Simulated scan of single mutants.
Amino acid sequence: MSYLPPSASRPGEGGPGPSGHGTGPGYGHGAGQGPGYGYGTGGPAPQYRAQGDDRTIAILTHLSGLVGALISVGWLGFVGPLVVWLVHKDRNAFLRATAAGSFNFNLSMWLLNAAAWVCLFTVILFPVAIVLWLVAGVLLVVCHVLAVLKANKGEVYRYPLQLPVLR
């Protein structure tokens, strides 16, 4: 049995979210779980429901990561989600989990891009660099498109291959 703070509710029970905004199911989470993540708990990630303009902000969060990465050739994809996380992390758990997941994934893709550049400059690993760039590019586009579709439904998308930096 997990401990819930008095201000949180279990998914499906209604009540205010962790920051006191909104009522309805899906804003509570157990001890040891960050919003949208089940790291170290062994259980499934809590489900959040978006309210109002939260879905639009979540869609823009995912798109900002993709557009930032494409414009900067893979170097600044994490900036947009980081800004959204800093601005909206206390608004509600849905936006916090969305921005954190997008930032963590884009940071992982940034590291993959950096590794590809290192491989490029060691001439013998040039083919590895090409493969890393292809993998990063495909993952970046496919995962962000899937994340936008989930955000449009008001659901949090769990990105693969993400380093849990923000929660």
Rank of each mutant, 00 (worst) to 15 (best):
M1Y: 09
M1A: 12
M1L: 09
M1D: 14
M1C: 08
S2W: 08
S2D: 14
S2Q: 10
S2K: 10
Y3I: 13
Y3H: 11
Y3T: 15
L4K: 01
L4T: 07
L4N: 00
P5Q: 11
P5E: 14
P6W: 05
P6F: 06
P6G: 01
P6I: 00
P6N: 02
S7A: 10
S7Q: 11
S7L: 00
S7N: 12
S7F: 06
S7P: 04
S7M: 05
A8L: 12
A8R: 04
A8H: 11
A8S: 13
A8K: 02
S9R: 08
S9H: 15
R10T: 07
R10M: 06
R10Q: 09
R10D: 03
P11Y: 05
P11R: 06
P11E: 07
P11D: 02
P11N: 02
G12F: 03
G12D: 06
G12Y: 07
G12T: 05
G12I: 02
G12A: 00
E13S: 08
E13D: 15
G14T: 09
G14I: 11
G14H: 12
G14Y: 14
G14A: 12
G14R: 08
G15A: 05
G15P: 03
P16H: 08
P16R: 05
P16V: 02
P16W: 02
P16S: 07
P16D: 05
P16G: 04
G17V: 03
G17E: 12
G17I: 01
G17L: 03
G17Q: 04
G17P: 04
G17C: 08
G17K: 01
P18I: 04
P18Y: 13
P18C: 05
P18K: 06
P18E: 15
S19C: 06
S19M: 05
S19F: 12
S19K: 04
G20N: 07
G20T: 03
G20F: 03
H21I: 04
H21V: 04
H21N: 15
G22W: 15
G22F: 13
G22K: 03
T23K: 02
T23N: 10
T23S: 12
T23H: 11
G24D: 14
P25R: 12
P25Q: 11
P25V: 07
P25W: 10
P25N: 10
P25K: 09
P25Y: 12
G26F: 05
G26D: 01
G26L: 00
G26V: 00
G26I: 00
G26R: 07
Y27Q: 10
Y27G: 02
Y27C: 00
Y27I: 00
Y27L: 03
Y27F: 09
G28L: 08
G28A: 10
G28S: 09
H29R: 10
H29W: 13
G30E: 14
G30F: 10
G30W: 10
A31F: 10
A31C: 08
A31I: 14
G32W: 08
G32D: 07
Q33D: 14
Q33E: 15
Q33G: 05
Q33R: 09
Q33S: 13
Q33K: 14
Q33P: 01
Q33N: 10
Q33M: 15
G34V: 01
G34C: 03
G34D: 03
G34N: 02
P35C: 13
P35T: 06
